[in-house]
Amino acid sequence: MSARGAIQREGIPFVFGILCLLAVITVIEMLIRWGMINPFIVPKPTDIVMSFERIILEENILPRFMMTFGEALMASLMLSVVGISLGVLLHRNTTVRLATQNWVAAIASAPLVLMYPLFLVIFGRSAWTIIMIAFVSALPPVILKTLEGLAGTRAVLINVGRSFKLTPSQLYWKILFPAALPNIFVGVRLGMIFALINIVGVEFLINFGGLGQLVNELAERYDLPGTYAAICFVILVSVVFFIGTERIERWLRPGT
């Protein structure tokens, strides 16, 4: 009964999702074949699939994938540690929060990627330039969502902790932090999206390596199926991170 329930709860939506994706791809394929979408702008999905083998064998995809993945991983780790810590600081210190909250929100909407020449000067033409731009750009959502999660903890849960005479540290670790985790993970996921966009964008701009550079090279060669195939690998990085954070969240906060 429970196995059947699990299939109904998770298996059916998963299969339905895959079928929807295949249906959309099929529709695009048909529209291109019927001449309703220009194939010089959007290549046929079948051509993209066919180009995967070529991209993997000829374009050195694995080291590029690993480079982008590594940069994203480093930026994500940094923004998780620093962003969550700053969110906690803003929650604990009202003066700091009132003084900086609006600035943090303003930075979230600023196109920091345009400051890449400054980062190049500071960190040189290295992976650290890419990581630092991604880190700084992705920091605000992590800070703000951490703050939102901590501040949004239901008062009754805090009162339960107080009634059991928890120390401030116990109150933080046993109640506030677990209660805020869903919001914190929303912030981390948003941050990862920001980080990955910036990583691929700067790889594209400074021609340093990784999947961004490959997308740039293939676009320059007007290899559209190859370009879209490379973009699929960027999406793969994102998917790996999403699955990873989901697993970590379930491990840290079961029952939800």
Partner: peptide, 19 residues
């Protein structure tokens, strides 16, 4: 808060992340 007084609140107060 006093160790001799145990409180049960009006609002739902279980910790959702704990069994």
């Amino acid at each position: 808060p006093h160790a001799s007084i145990g409180m049960i609140f009006q609002e739902e107060s279980t910790f959702p992340w704990r069994t």
